[in-house]
């Protein structure tokens, strides 16, 4: 139509057509609604609060109950630091994985069921753009809201309790491991969202993998090298500058990153063939 010529047409590669617009929409869903501050408060409050409890309250309670560990570790402060660091990293691995599962289990389902996905895909949009926009928006929101803010709170609390800045590099190492662990569950959830049409299997499979992992890993030790199951135990060690058992760091980290990539590729392939 002639009126059309007054506009600058979108000039994107067909293989990623619509990506920029979809990413804006996904980012808006995160940052343009109450979603961002609800999540920021929830995860920072929960993990920061738990860490604060371990740092400032638990040592006194342990000492009052005559726990010999307090003296063995050199007093209230070292005991609290150990407790705070361990609990933060172990709990954040578990809690953030659950957070990723809960937040992203309906990333595809809602729009598939409501008809929004069908409407969007009736526009000049490549299907991989649709999947990647959700993933990239998640990779922007999740590290900030679920990982960086709670980690910053924990870091400040640890530094406050120790009365000196907590060593930054080991702490960041621990946070990096938690991030890769969370990424695994995020991509697994997204992939399952393209494979199934109801929440049941998505929640069931992801939570069973997360919670059943430690049991299964205990029974079949080699699995610990090719899954993220050991990472929640490794991250506090790395953050505390403590030695990690041989082969328990890089192999599971590489395997976890590898699986995440596979999940993304499967999600892209499956969504390409999905019918609406």
């Amino acid at each position: 139509m002639a009126a059309n010529r007054a506009f600058e047409r979108v000039n994107e590669w067909n293989g990623l057509r619509g990506f920029a617009n979809l990413l804006r929409k996904e980012n808006r869903a995160w940052w343009g609604t109450r979603r961002w501050w609800v999540n920021a408060l929830l995860w920072t409050g929960m993990l920061g609060g738990l860490t604060g409890l371990m740092l400032f309250v638990m040592p006194s309670l342990a000492e009052a109950s005559g726990d010999p560990e307090v003296a063995a570790m050199g007093g209230l402060v070292p005991f609290g630091m150990e407790m705070g660091r361990s609990v933060f990293f172990q709990m954040s691995s578990l809690a953030l994985a659950i957070g990723a599962i809960v937040l992203f289990q309906d990333a595809f389902l809602d729009e598939k069921h409501s008809g929004v996905a069908e409407w969007i895909l009736s526009k000049p949009v490549a299907r991989r753009s649709y999947v990647l926009a959700k993933l990239v928006a998640a990779l922007l929101a999740l590290p900030v809201l679920l990982i960086a803010l709670p980690s910053l709170a924990a870091y400040l609390l640890l530094s406050l309790r120790g009365a000196v800045p907590f060593p930054v590099l080991p702490f960041l190492g621990g946070v990096g491991i938690v991030s890769i662990h969370t990424l695994f569950y995020l991509t697994l959830t997204l992939m399952l969202g393209t494979l199934f049409n109801s929440r049941g299997p998505i929640m069931g499979i992801t939570l069973a993998f997360l919670l059943g992992g430690s049991v299964l890993g205990g029974l079949l030790k080699p699995l610990l090298f090719v899954t993220p199951w050991i990472l929640s135990k490794v991250s506090p060690l790395v953050a505390g500058g403590q030695p990690v058992p041989a082969g328990m760091l890089w192999a599971p980290l590489a395997a976890t990153a590898f699986w995440s990539l596979i999940f993304i590729l499967v999600a892209l392939a499956k969504f390409e063939r999905t019918e609406f």
Binding site: F7, E8, R9, V10, K25, G115, K123
Partner: peptide, 26 residues
């Protein structure tokens, strides 16, 4: 579609802008 669906947290104008941006940059 038979049952039109939109991005519910967007207004009517914002939905139109969203749809238009699949075609036009400016």
């Amino acid at each position: 579609p038979q049952q039109p669906r939109f991005i519910e947290y967007l207004t009517a104008r914002e939905n139109l802008l969203f749809a238009a941006k699949f075609f036009f940059n400016g």
